[in-house]
Write a protein that binds this DNA or RNA. Structure first.
Lengths: 206, 206
DNA sequence: GTCTATATCGGGATAGAC
DNA sequence: GTCTATCCCGATATAGAC
């Protein structure tokens, strides 16, 4: 999807976009250089001309995928906002970003579970320290007795992330279970964007 | 884990268990017949002697994995219980089962997202009709105004499943984010088994 | 920069001896 | 049933002409 753009677009870009699509769908192990070439409508040897190897190409793809999924969120988490407001906008923003890149979660999760080492360093260096203020803010609130059931921050955070990310990862199940087509799924996500921010606040804060 | 059993165990069983471990960790595409053979401590050609092909072996593995993860749950969902009780036990039972087979969720989700056709038929034939009564029960409750925010059944169900399954899939993220080792993760799950059943009821029913 | 041809290798699968 | 040797294909990667 996404193209049929007859506009001029460099071979390098065409390759990258094709690679992104294929890696996202099939994962590193399932991806075939030939399929990437076909989708980019170029000769297979061009892949190596521009990117040297499958590994290097993959590296580029997942770094950009992570960059696209994470930094915008992280900025939000570092702002000096009351927890309630931060929860609300975290859920809304995150859902909105993923909606635009709906195959990134399953891609990242797949690679993370299949080949952790390749990708873990990015998390450790880029994500952890930026999420820490948010975690601290929740821990603080919990100590002050403001969190439902006095849950520790880990539980609150995982509940948040679960409800935001999982629907995209579980899309195939969802579509079978509720006989949804792609349009139905999008409507389903829009509904989530609508109610989930307030819902999360309600289920988290006393 | 799980072995070092010096007891006699048939070659066929050793192969199956090794295959299960490798397929669960690496997925179909990432798995290597050689690695399975090594782990089972047998010769590679034995794999073909007993299971003909990688495809056939995989088929056996994922069918058993699904069988292990799903039927017990499904029975529960068909019982004639009040919704509140059903929610509570659904969450508790499901968490407990997955805790014993913690790598199954990411395995199933990976294959479902990577190669849907292979696995979708099972869901369609085995799962959907058995989950339907549960879905109907929730829809009914929603019509009667008993569900928080009057959420439709799809949203309720996905919220449930998300909170149950995602922590296992997201384990690598969790472990980085909260500097958890495996013991820490298990404690984290035990905590969920403890609070989540009631928590879910509270956030779902008025 | 783009193509064709080819090298190289890994991995699934089979043959056949024991 | 178990082993060794080998086949064969598919996939990454490179060489080299244009």
């Amino acid at each position: 999807m996404a193209d049929d753009k007859l506009e001029k677009e460099s071979t390098e870009e065409k390759i990258f976009e094709a690679a992104r699509d294929v890696f996202h769908q099939k994962g590193f192990d399932g991806a075939r250089m030939q399929e990437i070439a076909d989708r980019a409508n170029i000769n297979k040897s061009m892949l190596h001309y521009y990117y040297r190897s499958k590994d290097k190409l993959f590296e580029k793809v997942y770094q950009l995928s992570l960059m696209r999924a994470i930094p915008k969120i992280v900025i939000l988490l570092n702002k000096d906002l009351p927890l309630e407001e931060k929860l609300r906008s975290f859920v809304r923003e995150y859902l909105t970003i993923i909606k635009k890149n709906p195959d990134i979660p399953s891609f990242i999760i797949r690679e993370l579970n299949t080949n952790p080492s390749r990708i873990q360093e990015f998390f450790r260096s880029q994500v952890v320290k930026n999420v820490q203020p948010f975690i601290d803010q929740i821990s603080e609130a919990s100590r002050e007795g403001k969190i439902v059931d006095n849950l520790p921050a880990e539980q609150v955070v995982i509940n948040l992330i679960s409800m935001i990310i999982f629907p995209f990862i579980g899309k195939p199940i969802l579509q079978i279970l509720f006989e949804m087509d792609d349009a139905g799924f999008e409507a389903f996500i829009d509904q989530r964007i609508d109610y989930l921010p307030d819902y999360v606040v309600k289920m988290t804060l006393k």
